[in-house]
Amino acid sequence: MGRFVPLILLAVAVGLYFLLPYNLAFLTRILIMVLLVLSLDLVLGYAGIATLGQAAMYGAGAYAAGLFAIHVWADPLAGLVAGAVAGAILALVSGLVILRAQGLTVIMLTIAVAQICAEIANRARDITGGADGLRGIRMDPVLGLFEFDFVGQVGYWYALIVVAVIFCFLMVLGRSSFGLSLRGIHESPARMGAIGVSVYWRRVAAYTIGGAIAGIAGALTAQITQLVSLETFAFVLSAEALIMLILGGTGRLYGAAIGTFVFMWAHHTAASNDPFNWLFVIGAMVLAVVFLLPKGLISMPAALTQIFKGGRDAGT
């Protein structure tokens, strides 16, 4: 069943474009967030690296893509590459240090890296615009053909295609030998060492790839909103990405997509209906999922089947 889910998700994304033509900016934000949460799924869901600092690579990618567009070349695809490289380099350099540690220390260090990045961007006003944000990003048309428009149609398709391509890449990666070894590390690092794997380097590799993908997500934000603010490094962003992933379910990729969509949709709806108490709705939703569906929303079909069949382990 799982193999059809990505196609259904793609159909939903295309359908929403036609159903909500005036909400494209919001839908594009969801797509970009899906990409960030996918990068987190690789790092946390597959490789088992507990992080609360994925925004560091997202922000690095956003600033890199913005600066690249302003000073070097305004081509969008080249900008994505710049964002990916920035995210990968930051993840590699910080990962070399962070992944020497274990458990809670890793979480603290990932938070610290994002904070340091935010402070650097804040202080380097002349380059980054500091607290005012990086302005003046003007992108060339995608592939020289499709000009970014006011309504956000091109932006939406552009983001959707980038997310779809990376989703496919991650599906391939998840089934590869490398993906299998990440699951092995997640389940039993001691055993991976005993079969000759340097767990440290394998984790660094996964963290770097995750960083590149987060960087691409950041680059998309910079290009589509034409603005990069210090918020791209925010702790809240890392934390929300984690909640979305847990909400949807880890280690399955489409869990990341579903969790992000549900979270952001609920957030959007609740915040516009009740600007004062929307956080309560989000909190209740997360609690309900964590208690009733510990493996996330993606486990709902299995849970429902079990309830209706009334039996335990029906059919296994």
């Binding site: 030998s177 490398f178 070894s181 389940e187 991976m192």
Partner: peptide, 27 residues
């Protein structure tokens, strides 16, 4: 110390892959 949620076959596949140095094969 096995990989508890992986199948017997996947458990045994893991060391064969690593012995053949295919552990970084991603595609």
């Amino acid at each position: 110390t096995l990989f508890p949620s992986l199948s017997v076959r996947e458990n045994i596949r893991m060391p064969v892959i690593e012995r053949k140095r295919l552990g970084y094969s991603m595609l």
